[in-house]
Every structure is written in C-alpha cells, then in structure tokens.
Amino acid sequence: MVVKAEKISRTFLRNKAGTNFFYAVQSTDFQAESGEFIEIVGKSGSGKSTFLNMLAGLLTPTEGKVYIGNTDLYLSEDGERSQFRNENIGVIPQGQTGLLSLTVLENVLLPSKIYGKCDGEKIVRAEELLKAVGLYDLKDVYPNELSGGEMRRMAIARALIMQPSVILADEPTGDLDEENTALVMSLLKNAAKGGATVIMVTHDKDALSYADKVYSMSGGVLSEKTA
C-alpha cells in the first residue's frame, strides 16, 4: 500500500499558557511505495517519531494530509481510523510496550483480539512468529519476565500478526544485539518483499544496509539521503 504525506507538519507549544510553539516536523511531502523498505535516521528530538506517529494515525498533523492507499487517514472518525490501523498498519512503538497483564502469546495476538478476529489461524500464525523471533518457549510467560531485547522482539511479532500492508517501526532494534538485529531486520525485509511498505526510524547504522531508501530528519526537516 502506498503511504503518502502531503505537506504534513506538527507544532507543539513549549509552555501551555504562551504562544511559544515550535515545529517538531516542518511541512513535509513524503511517499513510500508498496514493497519499499524505508529507513529514517536522525538525532534524538529531530522529529522522526512525531513523523512516524502522524503516518500511523496516532498524532493529528497540525497541517497536511496522510494517505494510506486511497484512504485519507485523518478524514475519518477515530473509530474508523483505529479499525483501519488495526487491519492495515503494523505499529512497533518505541520502548517497552508489552501489556503486563497478558502473556507473550496474548500480547502477540492482541491486535487480532481487539476486533474479535482471533481464530485458530491467528494462533498458529502467532506461534510461527514467536518461533521466528525466538520466543516460542516463552509464549506463556508475562512480559515482566522478559529482557529488553525479548520484549522488543515480542513487539515485532505483534506488529506482524495481522499481516499488515504497512509497517511503521520506531527504533525496533534499539535494545538488540547484532544477531537479533539481523533477525529483526530480515523479518522486516521479508515483509517488504511480501509487498508491505516498511518505514522504520532508527539510530542503528548496521540496519541501514537493509533499506531501499534512507531519509534523514533534522530539525523537523526530512530529506532523502543519496548513496
């Protein structure tokens, strides 16, 4: 699915009472085609995560439009947009994002459960994904028993459970060693080969070699890096 941003920007107030706002993301045009694997690099606070969250439908842009396929993401109501995200976008948020009340397997199945689509097929897929990320033996434990890297791999399996057309990953290899980084990157690369549009924000220089295109974000301005 094509991911397209038309002149999206996002401002934040520095203090609540004043008018002193800043641009986290400057007016940006962006497009990613189906099957493309795009990485966005940049310093902390450069606006990468804000940009990604806008593409995911999780943060309303101050200006501009986001299209996923033919869908104008922010034109629809929250309920409709949320269901669209559930069915089409696999989000890997930054940090540790396991729900502590659910087991590893339940966490992976979470997106399928939200709209009651968890069936035997999904359970089999979840188990396959857990095998692929090396967590099958830990499927019945709770996230607080996992290491940071294991938790991150669980989040990746969770993002892939619905076989999304778009994958948006925010620092997915942040806590991973070299071996696990390679594992995660190959999973994402395979998803792209399967037709998914993969957009990933990263600091990891080793991960850059997997990308079809690399963008850099600096001071809220996105620019394509040439090889």
């Binding site: 929250d78 309920g79 949320s82 948020p93 939200i114």
Partner: peptide, 16 residues
C-alpha cells in the same frame, strides 16, 4: 498511559 497508547497503536479506538 503507555499501556493505553500501545492499545491505540494496535488499533483500539478511544471509545474502547
């Protein structure tokens, strides 16, 4: 907050 944000990221609506 993080738990709710993750649920939202997975597709849960505000209503849910």
């Amino acid at each position: 907050g993080k738990e709710f944000a993750v649920l939202r990221a997975m597709g849960a609506s505000k209503k849910s």
